[in-house]
């Protein structure tokens, strides 16, 4: 009996020791130290025109908590751009994980009476009322990316162009194939999660391809994650033994798509990405994979929103426009990044 219990206690000691050891090792493994990420800002170096310091303004900022790379870049860019101006005080409130949380923190921000507020809402419809309230209290709202349904709820809307992303991708693929002289090409599409923005992207892609007389042969939808990208790409490659071109909506899921292409040992086609991540831009520049281009939906729009908010608060207009005030709506063009121009996008990748 004693022999038995001693054995047991020794075993326990060994197990316990191993467990503690493993735990220490594992907790050491959660570190993710990487070189500080660069942000996308417009330098405010020269003191001419609009860059010249003006009236001191307080800019409020509210956006959903970062749940993926793109949203993370939105937060970082807004902050960095504000820091680049000596006449801007930046006040960010926690956007939380849903509209309810965002409404309440926005309420406290409004009570502090900043000169102007930049808002990227969880859902334009659900935050509309609070934005309207701010406008009525005399605080202009700059609406970033997801539009409020009420035109009175914002002074300026600045957003990306999902339909335009599809159009840019469609034109790039259409032109490439036309130049190569491919008749009746096989075109595949790997879409993202089936939400309105994905539907818009696909509609733009279809419309642009139609101008060349091309159609999408097979469309799979992934979930913006790399593992779903791999899964859908593997099936797409299986469905189409010979492909001429693929458009993949999102560069993050593109990591998985490229992995699937490598695993299937295929290279007879070229691929266009979406969003414009740093990894994708590097791959395009290196030109060592099927990825030949990516169409942007750039989080640099947060930097531009802060710059425009500053001008509105200071009552200034855009230098190159005749009007004395900033326009009411800015829709960013979806730009196509290729090997030729990739180096000029280095700073804009996220």
């Amino acid at each position: 009996m004693t022999q038995h219990s001693r054995d047991l206690s020794r075993r326990r000691l060994l197990f316990g020791g191993a467990a503690v050891g493993a735990a220490t090792l594992l907790t050491a493994c959660t570190s993710n130290e990487t070189p500080a990420a660069s942000t996308q800002t417009k330098a405010a170096g020269n003191s001419e025109g609009n860059n010249a310091p003006g009236k001191k303004v307080v800019i409020g900022f509210s956006a959903p908590a970062a749940d993926h790379g793109w949203m993370g870049a939105i937060h970082a860019n807004a902050k960095a751009q504000a820091a680049a101006y000596s006449d801007v005080e930046f006040k960010e409130v926690d956007g939380g994980s849903n509209s309810e949380a965002q409404r309440s923190t926005l309420g406290t921000l409004i009570a502090q009476k900043p000169d102007i507020i930049v808002v990227l809402p969880h859902d334009g419809k659900e935050v509309n009322a609070v934005a309207l309230q701010a406008m009525q209290a005399g605080i202009p709202i700059v609406n970033l990316d997801r539009a409020f349904p009420d035109a009175l709820a914002s002074r300026l809307v600045i957003k990306g162009d999902n339909y335009g992303m599809g159009v840019s991708a469609g034109h790039f693929i259409g032109k490439m194939l036309k130049d190569k002289g491919v008749a009746n090409p096989v075109i595949g599409e790997i879409a993202g999660l089936e939400i309105p923005l994905t539907v818009e992207r696909s509609a733009g892609f279809k419309a642009a391809l139609a101008t060349y007389g091309f159609t999408v042969r097979n469309r799979r939808s992934a979930e913006f994650t790399s593992d779903s990208g791999q899964r859908e790409a593997a099936q797409l490659l299986q469905a189409l033994p010979k492909i001429d071109a693929i458009w993949n909506h999102d560069d993050d899921q593109g990591i998985g798509v490229l992995a699937a292409i490598k695993q299937a040992n295929r290279s007879e086609f070229f691929m266009v990405g979406g969003a414009g991540s740093k990894l994708a831009i590097d791959a395009i520049k290196a030109d060592n994979s099927v990825l030949k281009a990516t169409v942007t939906y750039n989080p640099s729009m947060a930097s531009s929103a802060v710059s425009l908010a500053r001008l509105i608060a200071q009552g200034r207009g855009l230098g190159d426009l005749t009007e004395l005030q900033v326009p009411k709506e800015v829709t960013l063009a979806s730009e196509t990044i290729t090997k030729e121009n990739a180096s000029s996008y280095d700073k804009l990748g996220f």
Binding site: H68, E223, F224, T225, S226, D227, G229, Q230, R231, D252, I255, G256, L258, A259, A260, Q263
Partner: peptide, 10 residues
């Protein structure tokens, strides 16, 4: 398979 991992995988 995905040569990467993220919190939303699987």
């Amino acid at each position: 398979q995905a040569t990467s991992a993220q919190a939303a995988m699987a």
